Simulated scan of single mutants.
Amino acid sequence: MSDATELPDSKGPLIYRQSIWTRVTHWVWAICLFFLLLTGLQIFNAHPALYIGNESGFEYENAILEIGAVNSAEGPRGRTILFGNTFDTTGVLGMSGDAARPTFTAFPGAVTIPSYRDLGTGRVVHFFFGWIFVATMLIWFVASFINGHIRRDIVPKPADIAGVPRDVAAHATLRFRHGRSYGPLQKLSYFTVFFILFPLIVATGLTMSPGMDTAWPWLLDIFGGRQTARTIHFTVMLLLVAFFIIHIIMVFAAGPINELRSMVTGWYRASPGTPGAEGDRP
């Protein structure tokens, strides 16, 4: 039965969809990524530019992103240079705050931890939650491999790839099928996050550490230098932020109460006709 033919008050079976391991790691990741993002922007503010290559500095012209402030006929203005293109970003990037007492930082204090310039605190908090993030990722991989979550819900199968066009159409028209397993787009997005973006942001983070480079010099070879690793790290962060925004939109579109109940208790209300019954566990 499709969503279009379901009665408004019809209810499908309540199924146990999310294990305790999935739920706990999900919320730990959410907390970690919040602090990692805001402290990461604090760290970025110490040198608000990204480069490609092993070297960086005033004598080089390999910056692909620069955020700062410049003087103009109208006074100081925020300026962002991206791939050689210059944008006035006053009030958002480079210069923000009250016009009488502006703040000259790449990202405003409203989105950094701490909200004022404090690179030392930002680094300590960033590394603290970074290691919690890594430990949680390892726990999730082991638990999800043992209980079959990776095989069942994360790794896309040929049938999932074939079903992508249909799933795209369903999402475009906000017609969601609530079943025991994830849909094709969910599998593809989660696979990308868990097996590409998460490992990549951890590996590039390690590459930026001089101590890790000394112990594992091959990291610099893989990512083309510390500055390139920093640029990749920043880019992956942007992709994770985009994923988070889309994820939240889809939660509200698919039914926030049902989705939140699933990630808090593990129980999920499926569409009518879905195999399963009250009290059933996979």
Score class of each variant (00 low, 15 high):
A229C: 10
G225T: 10
L93D: 07
F234L: 12
P156V: 02
L197A: 15
E59F: 14
L138R: 02
E59A: 13
P199A: 04
G84M: 04
M237H: 07
T173C: 03
L33T: 07
V202I: 07
S181M: 13
P165C: 04
T25N: 11
N85G: 00
T105E: 14
S2M: 08
L93A: 10
M208A: 01
V125L: 10
L200E: 02
S10K: 11
H247V: 09
L188K: 07
G255S: 08
L93C: 12
M137L: 12
G148D: 00
S56N: 11
S72M: 15
L33K: 02
R152W: 02
F194A: 15
A170T: 02
V251H: 06
L41P: 01
V28T: 13
W216Q: 03
F198T: 09
A4L: 09
P8Q: 12
N147C: 04
L50K: 05
T228G: 01
T89G: 10
S115I: 07
L238A: 15
V134N: 00
S271H: 04
L238F: 14
F223A: 08
M237Y: 06
M250D: 07
F194K: 07
N45S: 10
M95R: 14
I246G: 03
G94Q: 12
T231F: 06
F107G: 00
S271V: 04
E278T: 13
T173I: 02
I132R: 09
Y16D: 04
S2I: 09
P184C: 05
Q186F: 05
M137F: 14
D221Y: 07
G75Q: 08
V134R: 03
L7D: 03
E66K: 15
R23C: 12
Q42E: 12
F252W: 03
G224C: 10
G266S: 09
G225K: 07
Y51G: 04
G109T: 06
G148W: 03
G68K: 07
T86Q: 13
F244C: 12
I139C: 06
F107T: 01
P282E: 01
I201P: 02
F44I: 00
I249W: 05
P13E: 01
F44T: 00
A30L: 12
I196E: 12
I161N: 10
A170G: 04
F133I: 01
I67L: 10
M137W: 13
R281L: 14
G122F: 05
P76I: 02
D221N: 10
G225R: 08
D213T: 05
A69D: 11
D118Y: 04
I196K: 12
A30T: 14
G97A: 00
L50Q: 00
R151A: 14
R23W: 11
T39E: 03
N54G: 06
E259A: 14
P184M: 06
E6N: 08
P272C: 04
G179Q: 13
H171C: 06
R281E: 14
F195W: 13
S72G: 15
E59K: 13
V241F: 15
A169Q: 05
N258S: 03
S19A: 13
R226A: 11
E66I: 15
T105F: 11
T214Q: 10
